[in-house]
């Protein structure tokens, strides 16, 4: 651990060489030093050197834009592969995408412009100061109607409540309070997205039962499926 402890999915094929005129891109998303980032491998599988790389995003739900220029050595020679990291900012133009976390990307080089789309794991958009004040949490929990509460289950989870607390905290999901009621651990948690949406949660964990009950409360119901997936990914990986 240390440098990058947030849950980072394995790299996926974003642009196969067959669609990129020899350019292949594998990638994933992570979070480092308070910023989301794209972590990619560019490979030149063409028979000519590639130069002039640049990247652009279409408008997206969270206003993600590249935070710097793409750094690829020029030229990228035939058979050469290079790992590169692109820091992202969340201060760009916003347009709601379906699914919400969809991101359309354009990459250009001296040969052509290539397009692909991917989905951003929403946990890379959980900010470091997402710990809600306890008093505000209680008021907000009460304030959000039960129609805005969605329950789900996380199966096959073998973490203790302490392990879950620390693993979730490394991913910017903060435990505001915890109680043990009749042997069941109840964790009250908060997270905040880069666009200032708050999500409150309750985790019910029983040491004798690998199924965890997750209840999410937020005024922005749209984000719930992505948050449920993030909890699953973080707790099971």
């Amino acid at each position: 651990g240390g440098a990058s402890e947030v849950y980072t999915p394995p790299k996926q094929m974003w642009l196969p060489a067959s669609k990129g005129k020899g350019l292949e891109i594998l990638g994933t998303f992570s979070r480092k030093q308070g910023n989301p980032q794209m972590v990619m491998t560019f490979s030149n599988k063409a028979m000519q050197p590639m130069t002039g790389f640049a990247v652009q995003f279409n408008k997206n739900s969270f206003g993600l834009v590249p935070g710097s220029a793409l750094t690829i050595p020029s030229p990228l020679s035939p058979n050469q592969s290079i790992d590169t990291t692109l820091p992202l900012s969340a201060n760009g133009p916003i347009q709601r995408m379906d699914p919400l976390t969809n991101l359309q990307v354009a990459v250009k080089n001296c040969i052509d412009v290539f397009y692909f789309s991917t989905t951003v794991p929403i946990n890379v958009l959980f900010v470091e100061d997402g710990q809600m004040d306890r008093k505000v949490f209680l008021a907000t929990w009460k304030d959000i109607p039960s129609s805005n509460e969605v329950q789900s289950q996380i199966s096959n989870c073998n973490l203790s409540s302490e392990q879950a607390t620390s693993r979730l905290q490394r991913n910017n999901i903060f435990t505001v309070a915890n109680r043990n009621v009749d042997g069941q651990d109840m964790l009250y948690q908060s997270l905040r997205l880069t666009n200032n949406i708050w999500v409150l949660s309750e985790l019910k964990m029983n040491p004798d039962n690998p199924t965890v009950q997750l209840s999410l409360k937020t005024r922005a119901l749209d984000v719930i499926p992505s948050i449920q997936k993030a909890y699953n990914d973080i707790m099971l990986n």
Binding site: K135, L138, A177, R179, V181, D182, Q184, M186, Y188, K204
Partner: peptide
């Protein structure tokens, strides 16, 4: 301190009200 105690109590009540019997 009293405020903290109240908050502790509120979380205990919340947890009790939501725990499965």
């Amino acid at each position: 301190e009293d405020d903290d105690g109240d908050l502790d109590d509120c979380f205990s009540k919340l947890a009790e009200s939501r725990s499965n019997p």
